[in-house]
């Protein structure tokens, strides 16, 4: 039963090729284009084939894990937000909720969407990481350089870091998708929910700047508020696990503030519960009028 529910949503989203190409498959496609260009340069330029060029290239485990860092940033969240906004608001715009709501619990329909959106993102970015890993592997092969050790310790460390990056990206996806779902339910329009979601994401990212300005202009120290945002806590969790240190907020001008790993996890969990809860509450009470 769950397989059909998942497959139905997957096929529905995948069928919108323009949207998935732009928001999902663009990441692996960009990786393919990047390496095609690199190999073209290597093929045409004898200097680029110099073995010394291998210095500074990532090892296989770095190639796989660091790819995710490209996505754990504001731009990555805009992509997720845009994708989720279209997926949720599309049901209102096409008037298609009425095909499902009488036969499925609204909570099931909504949670299924979150799961499938996260699955799309995880799949596309895993594919991108694999392409990046293969691309750098091929470059190492061309230069005749070692692609990093493959011993038990390296593999263990890699697995931990890889899972961490995936989890952080998955969590970021859920939060951005939550914003998008909520915006879609309120506006019932693809374009409006897309822009609202992007604006919320930008405001969240720009909050630190706003707080700094407030501090500078009004001597009002609300900096502590920033540590409750999802973006700060996702960065903080990554920092704790990779470097065993927190991400500090503040500089010489204002008191620095830090959060423990447990506190960051609790804040992120609270955000997910609140956003998903609000979305489900709103959807379950909503009249489907289109």
């Amino acid at each position: 039963m769950f397989a059909n529910l998942f497959a139905g949503e997957w096929k529905k989203i995948a069928g919108n090729r323009g949207m998935t190409t732009l928001f999902v498959w663009s990441a692996p496609i960009a990786a393919v284009i990047f390496f095609a260009f690199v190999f073209l340069v290597i093929a045409l330029s004898p200097g680029a084939r110099d073995p010394s060029s291998a210095q500074g290239l990532p090892t296989w485990d770095q190639a796989l894990t660091d790819t995710w860092l490209l996505l754990n940033n504001p731009f990555g969240r805009y992509v997720i937000a845009g994708f989720a906004a279209i997926v949720f608001a599309g049901e209102y715009q096409f008037g298609t909720w009425k095909n499902f709501v009488p036969h499925r619990r609204r909570t099931t329909l909504l949670l299924n969407k979150f799961i499938v959106i996260a699955a799309f993102m995880m799949f596309a970015w895993t594919l991108m990481a694999v392409i990046v890993c293969l691309g750098f592997g091929l470059m190492h092969l061309i230069y005749g350089a070692s692609y990093g050790s493959f011993d038990g310790e390296t593999v263990r460390r890699f697995a931990g870091e890889y899972l961490l990056n995936m989890s952080v990206t998955g969590t970021a996806t859920l939060i951005a998708a939550g914003y998008a779902a909520l915006a879609a339910m309120i506006t019932r329009s693809i374009l409006s929910s897309f822009f609202i979601t992007i604006i919320i994401t930008i405001v969240e990212d720009a909050l630190l700047l706003v707080l700094f300005i407030l501090y500078g202009l009004l001597d009002l120290n609300l900096l502590r508020l920033y540590v409750y945002t999802p973006s700060f806590n996702l960065i903080n969790i990554t920092s704790w696990i990779t470097n065993d240190t927190p991400t500090p907020v503040g500089d010489d001008m204002i008191p620095s503030t830090t959060l423990s790993l447990e506190a960051s996890i609790a804040i992120i969990a609270a955000w997910i519960v609140v956003i998903l809860g609000l979305t489900l509450w709103r959807f379950n009470r909503q009249d489907i009028t289109t």
Partner: peptide
């Protein structure tokens, strides 16, 4: 009738039937 404009008629029915179980 409200369906996904980018899907075929057959795929639209498949999607509805799968999601509705």
């Amino acid at each position: 009738a409200a369906f996904y404009p980018y899907l075929s008629g057959c795929r639209n029915l498949e999607v509805i039937a799968r999601i509705n179980g």
